[in-house]
Simulated scan of single mutants.
Amino acid sequence: MNTMACMPNTTRSPRRLVQERNSDMTTKPNIPIFFTIDEGYAPWLSVALLSLKENASPACRYDVHVVYHNMRPDTIERLSRIAGDDFSISFLPMTETMESITDWEGNYLRADYFTLTIFTRLFLPDMFPQYDKAIYLDSDICVPGDISKMYAIALEDNYLGVVNDYSIANVLELNHYVKDAVGVDKDHYFNSGILLMNFQAMREHHLASRFLDLMAKYHFDTIAPDQDYLNALCKDKVVYLDPTWDSMPCDLDEFENPQIIHYNLFDKPWCYDDVKYEKYFWDVAKRSDFYEEIVAYKQGYSDAQKQKDAQSLAQLVSRGNAIPDQAVTMRKVFESGQEARL
C-alpha cells in the first residue's frame, strides 16, 4: 500500500528539471478522494473542492470522485469547472444497491434529514477496487491544510484513520448513548465525516456485506447511522489522527492551524452567524461559482428553520437517551457474542 508522503524534492538540479516536468504524470503519487452528495449540498461541495484544490501539494495528483444522488446536469457541469491540472473531478451516480435501503427513522441524519448518501461511504472500497487506500470527506467542510499530509499517514492493518467526534463526546446527554448503545468509550467514538480509509483491508474483511447483513437482521436504531455502524464494526482497528484533521465548531477553542474544518451537525456558517471557523468558509466561498446562491440561502434561512434545528437537536438527544434501553442494541449484540466485529 502506497503511503508515500507528497513532499517536493528541493535538491533537484536545473539540468534535470525539464526532464522531470515531462515525467510528472507518471511519477507523481496519486491521491483518491471521495465525496457523496445530493443536489442540495452542491453549493457547499463547491467550497470544499476549491479549498482542497487551492491548498493541495503540487507534488501529487488528485483524483476526486463525487458519488451523487439526484443531481442536475447543469450542477455537475458547474462543479466540474473546478477541476484543473493534477486535480481531476469525476461524477458517478449511485448504484441501485443503495436504493434497497429504505427511508425509516433510524436512518435519519441529525434526526431529521434522510439521504442515501450517508451510507455510500461504506460501499466505496467495493465500488472502486482499483484503490487500496483513499480519503472520504463530507461536503460540509473547508480544507485550509494540505490533504496529502493526511494521506501519507500509515494505517498498517487498521481499517480507518479517524478523529474523535468531540461534538458528541462533549454532550453529556449523549455519553450514555455512545457507551451503552454503540458500545464505544466516548473518547474513542469517531466521526465518519472525515476518513482515511484502508480500502484493501475493508474489502478483505467484507465490510459492505457485514453492514448489510447487520442492518437487515437487526435494524439497529441509531442517531448517526453509518457512523455508528463503523464505530461498532471497526472498534479497536482504527488510527486516531490529530484532531485538526476534523476541526469541529463545537464547545472547544478554535485550533490555531486547522487542516480540515468540518461544519457538522447544525454549526454551519451558511445558516448562522458567529460560527467558529466561519472566516475560512467565506474566504473560499466568495470565489465559488455558487457564491450568490450561498449568500441567498443564508439570507433566507428563516426563524422557523432555526427553530426546527433546535427541535431536531432536542429530538436527537432524546432518542439518544432512549435507545440504550431497547432490547436490541449494537453493544448488546456484539458483547453477547451473537455477532463478531470486523
Rank of each mutant, 00 (worst) to 15 (best):
Y177I: 02
Y177C: 05
V178L: 08
K179Y: 03
D180S: 08
D180T: 00
D180H: 04
A181E: 05
A181K: 10
V182G: 02
G183T: 03
V184Y: 03
D185E: 14
D185Q: 08
D185F: 03
K186V: 10
D187H: 11
H188T: 14
H188P: 01
Y189F: 15
Y189N: 02
Y189I: 10
Y189V: 09
Y189K: 07
Y189G: 06
Y189S: 10
F190Q: 05
F190V: 07
F190H: 01
N191R: 01
N191D: 01
S192P: 00
G193V: 03
G193D: 03
I194P: 00
I194G: 01
L195W: 03
L195C: 04
L195D: 01
L196I: 11
L196Y: 06
N198A: 06
N198V: 13
Q200V: 04
Q200G: 07
A201C: 06
A201P: 02
M202P: 04
E204S: 13
E204V: 02
E204A: 13
H206Q: 14
H206V: 10
H206A: 12
H206L: 12
L207Q: 01
L207G: 03
A208F: 12
S209I: 11
S209H: 09
S209D: 14
R210S: 14
R210C: 12
F211P: 05
F211E: 05
L212D: 07
D213C: 09
D213P: 01
L214C: 03
L214E: 02
M215Q: 15
M215P: 00
A216R: 13
K217V: 09
K217I: 06
Y218S: 13
Y218M: 09
F220V: 13
F220M: 07
T222D: 03
T222Y: 11
T222V: 10
I223R: 06
A224P: 00
A224V: 15
P225C: 14
Q227A: 10
